[in-house]
Design a protein around this nucleic acid. Structure first.
Lengths: 354, 354
DNA sequence: CGACTCCATGTGAACGCTAACAATTGGGGG
DNA sequence: CCCCCAATTGTTAGCGTTCACATGGAGTCG
């Protein structure tokens, strides 16, 4: 029987050319120790000559490992998620894994279930979920997992492995910075209420104010977009006692600064504005924005590292339903925290009476 | 023989429960017409009951289709590539495809080859390459493809299917806009010389100047970053005859505006600045940036549509080495062009003597 | 009423790989 | 000199699916 010449070569073809059995070819490919160097050479030459590439589909069928990790994200257009994704991609490939990506249309339970199903059908070895919304994080725990799952910017309290930037600390850093400059209090334009990062930044802000005995103004809420920053900035411009604003991300901060500028309120002389994320642009805003830098690449690396750890464990109780058997106490789901860093630029300064 | 109860169910399990053969289960799953409705019901019930999910690995092995598309990108942190990727992801999933992503570390031939190899091993059905660098585009044509390839923002002249935003037109739109405002000529801060988009925007600019009989100043070059815009902005600030600058992307434009501002040169009164990309921030820059909007989502959709077209063709001569047999003339590689749109904001205005 | 078709279903063989075991060789120790 | 063991290689049997073909029963038609 003659193989279709247009079909790419398979192991048997290599074996024939090298004059060995297909199993020996497999051994060479898998770096088995017991292969004579001379035989190995011959096989490698045949592989080279034929341009053979192992069919990872067939391999996955028998090994039950696809060497593929799934990633579930939300809006990959936002700077944070995009950067994290980038870090994950790098780390995964360095570890020899393929990456399969699903981005959620809506942050709904149904969409999440569909995404998990999509990845399960594809037999991924593990999943990274970048879904910083609390409802979704909870929903995730209710779906039975066949494979290890690591969440990024997820809820640390739902029992899943998680890698987080310490958003609470970030909010505290900003607030302390502004209080130390002499502001009586700090206003806050937060992100959407159901975003975990927004909640944590807000609580860092609130607790710092409380600890300092400063009044806690009612927070404003935006949707991360520059436009929502602009609208809220217009509101802030109308409040004469505002001297310092902590904005939950740089894009909204840009909008706030713009609105203040249009209202002829000078930044930072009359109102200090601090952002969050340290997007590449923020250094060149007018004025350059004081903000909080997060090491997204590090977050991506840590997430993959956690996933690989879980994959390396032989017994697969990645998720413990409860106390279960007393023999092996369920190890707590690992948490990794990456510390953010305050970057002081020119948009924050001591208060001046307005 | 008893199956490991922890193993997920397979077709045979469904078959046993439903009292049919595995082949009938397969028929139900693949919507074959000749299955009695009653049988279908029984099979579906068994699937539901067992929580069965088809193993797409095994399926791929026999069908030789993985329902997976590969995407090769470069820096997914940049707004354009990130947005395009987003559009591609959506379109691919709507069409029922999985997406496997590889991002190049360096824009080198070796890295590209590795990425292609990575995807080939994974048996992807087709590949989208978002690699807007000319050297890489050429290298791509020299690598034999087993599967259809569509390039995004690639070189239209190398014989691969390509989806492009008409960057040349974008450059022309900006230049015409500025000339029409009364500027004697327009300076240009271009992107890196080896980027195709940078080349096309530059040529649109140059040709428009030539057509208008305006002098063509020597272009400056940046690396897309706000910082490089800033540095080049400092140079431009020192040139008294500059009244209008076309900057090849919004991030650099931000840097230019910043540098001009620091040099106490007012935008747009003394110098008009126009960017490219229409990132969400640009509307809120100081002043709001005149720029060119590109429909990245549309680009992503078109790229997937092209790939699906190629996949649908039965005969697979996706790439014709030459004229070959006279019988079926090689169809020209399809080109799809998406038109950009000028967005006029406040950073461009008629010239005023400086 | 026999031959023929159509429908519904089952059976066996791939797909390309790895795991498990079998077979063959050569060398060292008793 | 023979036996045993290690090293090297081959053989066979899956992995879970789809494809090609076989089977059997119910109509249909001349």
């Amino acid at each position: 029987m003659v193989r279709n010449p247009h079909r790419s070569p398979v192991m048997a073809d290599v074996a024939r050319v090298a004059g060995v059995s297909h199993q020996t070819v497999s051994r060479v490919l898998n770096d088995h120790p017991n292969v004579r160097p001379e035989t190995r050479e011959r096989v490698l030459a045949a592989i080279e000559g034929l341009g053979y590439r192992r069919n990872s589909t067939a391999r996955a069928l028998v090994t039950r490992r696809t060497d593929t990790l799934g990633v579930i994200t939300f809006d990959t257009t936002l700077y944070g998620p995009a950067s994290t994704l980038h870090g994950i991609e790098r780390a995964a490939r360095d570890a020899g894994y393929f990456l399969s990506i699903v981005s959620l249309r809506d942050l709904t339970r149904a969409d999440l279930a569909e995404a998990l199903d999509h990845l399960a059908r594809q037999q991924v070895d593990g999943i990274v979920v970048i879904v910083p919304q609390s409802a979704v994080a909870v929903a995730l725990t209710e779906m039975p997992q066949q494979v290890p799952v690591v969440t990024v910017e997820g809820d640390a309290d739902v029992g899943l492995a998680v890698v987080n930037v310490d958003q609470h600390m970030g909010g505290a850093l900003v607030t302390e910075h502004l209080l130390r400059l002499g502001h009586r209090t700090v206003w806050h334009l937060a992100g959407p209420e159901d975003w975990l990062e927004a909640q944590a930044r807000l609580s860092g802000w609130r607790e710092t104010l409380l600890a300092a005995g400063a009044p806690v103004p009612p927070p404003l809420y935006g949707d991360w977009s520059p436009r929502s920053g602009y609208r809220n900035g217009q509101r802030l411009a109308g409040m004469p006692d505002v001297t310092a604003v902590f904005v939950a991300n740089d894009q909204m901060a840009l909008g706030v600064v713009r609105a203040l500028h249009e209202a002829r309120i000078r930044v930072p002389e009359e109102v200090s504005v601090v952002g969050f994320d340290d997007i590449p642009e923020s250094e060149f805003f007018a004025p350059p924005l004081t903000t909080v830098a997060q090491d997204f690449a590090e977050v991506g690396r840590k997430a993959i590292a956690l996933l690989l750890d879980a994959l390396a464990e032989e017994e697969p109780p990645w998720r413990h339903a409860g106390p279960a058997d007393g023999a092996t106490p369920a190890p707590a789901a690992p948490r990794v925290v990456v510390r953010p860093q305050l970057v002081v630029r020119r948009s924050s300064a001591p208060p001046t009476p307005r």
